[in-house]
Every structure is written in C-alpha cells, then in structure tokens.
C-alpha cells in the first residue's frame, strides 16, 4: 500500500514536471517558472477584498459558515487532559444559550492529546486534528517526524497538521521538502487503508516573500498535501490576508491544471468575525464558491470562536452581550 502511494505521487510529479527523475534542479525550474507575485499589487488586492461590506443575512450566513470552518486549537506546553476535554466539549456545544449554533470542524491538539479529545468527541462528527512532525520547528529527523505522525494517526487523529522543513526550503533543497511531505502523507495511511487528511504547514512567516509562499504552496500540492496551511501560530506574522490570497490563487490554478481540489487553512492571528468574513470574501472571489465549505477551507484559531458567537448573539438579540455571556472552556492559564 505505502509503496504504491509513493510511486503514484512520484510518477504524477515527474509527469507534471515533464522529467524522467525528480531532482532539485527539476523542482527549482518548475517552481521558479511560476509567475511572480508583485507584493504591492497582492497587498492592494487583499485590501480591496477587505472593503466588502457584509451585512444582515449575508453576515448571519457567513458567521455560521466561519464557525463550522474552525479548527478549535490548543497547542501549549501547559495543555492538560482537563483543558483538552473542555475544548472538545466547547466544540460539541459552542453556545449553550443557542443550540442552533453550528459546531467547529475539528479540535486541533498535540499528538499526545488526541485520545483525550477523541474520547470526548466520540462519533459527533467533529474531527480531531493533530500537529505532528516535530511541530512547530520541524527540526528533527525524518524518522522522528514519521513516528510522531504514526502515533497520532494510531491514536485516532482524523487529520494531521505537519510542518515543512523551512530550512531545506530556504536553502533550495526542494526535494527534501517534497520527500518529507510524501513520506508523512504515507504515514497518514491507517491499517484499514483509509487515511488521515494531511495539512501542510508552510510557516509563511518564515518564508517571508509571496514568491516563496506561492512556490511552497505548489510544492506541497505536488507532494500530495490535502490542505495547505499558513502557520503554526508560533511565529509572527501568521495568517495574513495577502498570504492567504496567494494560497487561494495557488489552489485555484492547481485545480484548473489537475482537476483536483486542495484545501486552504489560514491559522494564527485571526481573532475577529470581521477578519474571518474578509477571508471568506477572499475565498469566494478568488478560489470560488466550491471552497466555501469546511472540507476545503478552515480557520486555525482559538479565540475566534468567541467573537463569532458574540456577533451571532448580537444578530439574534439586537444587542451586544459580553465576554461573560460566552462560555469559554479554554481561557489563558496565565
């Protein structure tokens, strides 16, 4: 099973690049042949999308959609089973005062907390995503990264959020980045042949330029990532709108080229409903309607849910409540 997946993706990659063997030189030629991104123009486009005014029915719809797209996240050294249980319970009942509130898509935790989250979430349909591969730095051997992934999958993770080797990427060693993604993708396969969905974290804050973000996006898709994700949340800047615009362009163009959809997950720094709605506008106007679904778009966030619920309550009550009216199972310990 595992060998055939590797072979398939390698064959497809060679086919796409039109080469007989995947080498750094072949990958560089392909990635560097992508159109460049003009920074000023890209940021202006993102700023333009931000000026969309989403009101009344559209806002109500967008808030519910945004809630359903959240990977409710806790990734702290101080995470305890109690905190993870609380977070998972929060995902089951996001707003005790209004049962019509949709649930987030998944709970995102470190690998050792997967079982705890899974136990609380049961068969609710809310997924468990685990960060793996020596998150967040990714500075470990491939063996360690794969073991990390396999353990999380074995513990019941539905999704794996891996980090790429940014050092290798910046050094121009695209083949290492590619090979690692392929290997981790392979490790996502369960004994029964099914597989956890793989989100590839590019840590765009460390890649810095939009050209790099575009290249890393294409490299991740080439290697078989099911999602491309901006950030770990541990590096600033994390998920900015212009970076997400570049990634949405990448999945749109990849779909036009290959006919396959890849998901996008901005993570880190998206805290308000207004921000979240700007991202949805970008999804709508750049990638298109097909991506407006939590199969294809996610927000990696912890506090965003609170603001979305606050706004949701305001829209049904007509007045703002306040932090004490939003049940919060994951307040900061500090």
């Amino acid at each position: 099973m595992s060998t055939s997946t590797t072979t398939d993706s390698a064959a497809r990659a060679r086919d796409l690049l039109g080469v007989s063997g995947l080498t750094n030189r072949a990958l560089a030629a392909w990635l560097h042949g992508l159109p460049g991104v003009d920074q000023v123009g890209c940021e202006a486009r993102a700023a333009g999308l931000k000026t969309r005014s989403i009101k009344t029915d559209s806002k109500r719809w967008a808030i519910d959609l945004a809630i359903s797209m959240i990977d409710l996240t806790t990734l702290e050294g101080a995470d305890t089973p109690g905190k993870v249980r609380g977070l998972a319970t929060r995902a089951l009942v996001p707003d005790p005062s209004d049962p019509s509130t949709p649930s987030p898509a998944a709970v995102c935790v470190y690998g050792d907390m997967v079982a705890v989250a899974k136990e609380t979430l049961g068969e609710s349909g809310i997924g468990v995503a685990a960060v793996a591969t020596a998150f967040p730095s990714g500075r470990a051997s491939l063996e360690v990264k794969l073991a990390d992934t396999r353990e999380a999958v074995a513990a019941g993770a539905d999704e794996i959020d891996m980090v790429i080797d940014r050092g290798a990427f910046l050094a121009g060693d695209y083949l290492t980045v590619y090979d690692q993604i392929v290997a981790v993708k392979d490790a996502c396969t369960r004994a029964d042949g099914s597989a956890a969905r793989l989100k590839v974290i590019m840590e765009t804050g460390e890649l810095v330029t939009y050209d790099n973000v575009r290249r890393a996006s294409w490299l991740s898709m080439l290697a078989g990532g099911d999602f491309i994700k901006t950030s770990t949340g541990k590096i600033s800047p994390a998920a900015t709108l212009p970076v997400t615009v570049v990634m949405l362009e990448a999945v749109r163009d990849w779909h036009a080229l290959i006919g396959e959809m890849v998901g996008v997950k901005p993570a880190g720094g998206i805290r308000t409903s207004k921000d979240a709605i700007s991202f949805l506008v970008a999804v709508h106007e750049i990638a298109g309607e097909d991506w407006l679904d939590n199969t294809w778009f996610r927000f990696g966030a912890s506090s965003l849910l609170n603001d979305l619920i606050l706004q949701r309550q305001r829209m049904s009550l007509g007045v703002y409540s306040g932090a004490d009216y939003i049940a919060d199972d994951a307040p900061s310990a500090y």
């Binding site: 005014s53 029915d57 559209s58 967008a62 506008v281 309607e289």
Partner: peptide, 10 residues
C-alpha cells in the same frame, strides 16, 4: 442562502 450573496449595503 446556498451561495455567498452579498446583501445590499447602501
């Protein structure tokens, strides 16, 4: 609302 229609914002 099946699609993302922007409500009037005059």
């Amino acid at each position: 609302m099946p699609t993302f229609e922007y409500a009037p914002a005059p």
